[in-house]
Design a protein around this nucleic acid. Structure first.
Lengths: 153, 153
DNA sequence: CACATTTGTATGATGCGTCATCTACTTCTG
DNA sequence: CAGAAGTAGATGACGCATCATACAAATGTG
């Protein structure tokens, strides 16, 4: 399994490259999104997740879980998005503790307009640079890495 | 080149997987590092970069550029690390505008102790899950993506 | 059915990253 | 060599993420 203590050149190049790629991609996509909309990446994540289900209604906790955000982070972010009239929160009639998040018209317009360009940016910055084989390799690796992280060990 | 507007299943799996992998890995490594040291990932990045040159002296701007951090971020972070006695800043005798950053003894101890376990964590969480071929593929892809980002277009 | 426990969400404090700006020093120009 | 322009770094204000906690509603228990 190689030396346990350090990384050899292949390993180091992969690890550094991976981080570098993430940091640059993330920053560039944020700039692309900002240039073509009024949304941050976080806004985009919230809005696009909301559109993923047919009735576009999510309980805060479920939305947070699905997005892999902390409940607190989402709650704060929803508060800000609500101020900007992008989302609404209503009390769940089934359970008065719970809040149901929905898109406002403004939110729906925002995500509709932003989505096309964001996807185009992802394609331009990342997808189109990779081969199909590379994409498959990356997806497989990612699944394995994430699976393994969920095992306590 | 496929449909320009949306992502097909291979593309989507790769993109989502990549982001997911990054988020989980980063969080887990931060927890690992916190468990085995008093350092944050940012602290680690600063300290380990400092040890990369023989005399362990860096001008703030050069350090920032090498780390791909903004000068401001580094300056703020150095201020906090200085309060914790991990680094020192001295005025450069050659150029009184400039500051030279160096490790304190405490900083050197901290990074020395933390490094072994951090590298072990990277290996455990990521490297050991990938094959050599995957690592090479990832590194190549990362280089290409990053290179392409630097072209304005 | 009172009371303890659990669950769903919000909120306040704190620390970090970014942007715009400030200061001090250095370099360039005539 | 005076003044303008440029450069190195620090700083303050602001927005966002996290942690701990608060609160209210729901559920379980005797």
């Amino acid at each position: 399994m190689g030396n346990v203590e350090w990384l050899d050149s292949v390993e180091e190049r992969a690890w550094r490259g991976f981080r570098r790629m993430w940091i640059h991609l993330d920053a560039q996509l944020a700039r692309d999104l900002a240039a073509s909309s009024e949304l941050s990446m976080a806004d985009y994540a919230v809005l696009s997740t909301l559109t993923e289900v047919d009735d576009e209604r999510w309980r805060v906790t479920e939305l947070a879980a699905h997005m892999e955000w902390s409940q607190s982070r989402l709650s704060h972010h929803l508060a800000r998005m609500q101020d900007r009239d992008l989302v609404k929160r209503e009390t769940d009639p089934q359970d008065a503790r719970a809040a149901v998040v929905t898109l406002t018209n403004r939110g729906r317009e925002a995500i509709t307009e932003a989505a096309t360009e964001h996807v185009a940016a992802v394609r331009k910055r990342f997808i189109s640079v990779a081969t199909r084989e590379e994409l498959r390799t990356l997806a497989d690796l990612a699944d394995r890495v994430v699976d393994r992280l969920s095992i306590p060990t």
